[in-house]
């Protein structure tokens, strides 16, 4: 029973880490960053190549190799996330007016996602790669890592100046600017934090279970995006709650005779949640200014 609960919570924590990236960017920009799943995939590759090719895998590096690989993956993810923002989204934000202000970045996000998937396929081939299963951290440490990271994020958002600035931009970017906050800098920071969290999620996912391939981001990213929406997109505790909920529901379904239709059943349950609370579990139902 305890082992089961740990496994379910670990599944949920990994989804939550990735869901946070979607929700934070949505909070400050009102943009669903579909390229987030590709940041996750690319950081998975960064960690794998570092661990397997440079540190010599399990045989030479052992468990400590994973920690170094995670740090490398985080740096790579931050660099990629910030570059995507600078190259693809910022120019649009400066130029877009009226109705296109929302649609153009969204379409661009989908484009960036497809572009990065194709780049990964060319660079790393479509053949899946796998971490040595002996490198997998035990489930309690997965939960511990996720809990520490999420507590740190909560402190960052609520106790620091930049966290306050993030919240201010999320509420009203124009008013924040008048108060002396540079929204561009806050946005870059948000992308950096979200990408670093995705890298941690990617390494945990890839070492404990998933294989690394160009389409891995889409499979895991869909779960995380749904988690962010169910929790209430834009809400940081909501993303954590949504992720854990999906993880635990999924594990519960595995105990029924319908385990072969796990995703379908979990998503039906989540639709029911959204019918009852359209803004998500912790989302605010206030009307948005457009």
């Amino acid at each position: 029973m305890i082992a089961w609960l740990l496994n379910a919570l670990a599944q949920g924590c990994m989804i939550a880490l990735i869901a946070l990236g979607y929700t934070m960017v949505y909070g400050v920009l009102r943009l669903i960053n579909f390229a987030h799943s590709e940041v996750l995939m690319m950081s998975g590759y960064a960690a794998f190549l570092m661990n397997d090719r440079i540190l010599g895998g399990y045989a030479r590096g052992g468990q400590s190799g994973v920690i170094i690989a995670t740090l490398v993956a985080m740096v790579a993810a931050v660099a990629l996330g910030v570059s995507i923002e600078a190259i693809a989204y910022r120019p649009l934000r400066k130029r877009a007016r009226g109705a296109t202000a929302r649609i153009a970045p969204l379409v661009t996000a989908i484009g960036v996602s497809m572009f990065l998937q194709s780049v990964a396929q060319l660079a790393f081939s479509a053949t899946p790669q796998k971490f040595d299963p002996r490198l997998a951290p035990p489930m309690p440490s997965v939960i511990l890592v996720a809990a520490v990271v999420m507590a740190g994020l909560y402190a960052l958002v609520h106790l620091t100046w930049i966290g306050k600035a993030m919240r201010a931009v999320a509420v009203n970017a124009e008013a924040a600017r008048l108060m002396g906050i540079n929204p561009s800098r806050v946005i870059v920071f948000t992308f950096a934090v979200g990408s670093a969290l995705a890298a941690i999620g990617a390494v945990l996912y890839a070492t404990t279970q998933a294989s690394i391939e160009p389409t891995m981001g889409t499979a895991i990213g869909t779960l995380a995006f749904v988690a962010a929406v169910v929790g209430g997109i834009g809400s940081v505790p909501g993303a954590m709650l949504g992720g854990v909920l999906i993880g635990v529901l999924g594990e519960l379904v595995k105990h029924t005779t319908f385990s072969g239709m796990k995703d379908a059943i979990v998503f039906i349950l989540l639709v029911v949640v959204l019918l009852v609370r359209p803004a998500g579990l912790l989302g605010s139902a206030r009307a948005e200014k457009v």
Binding site: N7, G260, M261, K262
Partner: peptide
């Protein structure tokens, strides 16, 4: 008898059962 979907990544629950 345990069954999982092709996309499943975590089979721990099945093997515990």
């Amino acid at each position: 008898k345990e069954t999982f979907q092709a996309e499943e990544t975590n089979v721990l629950t099945f093997l515990t059962k």
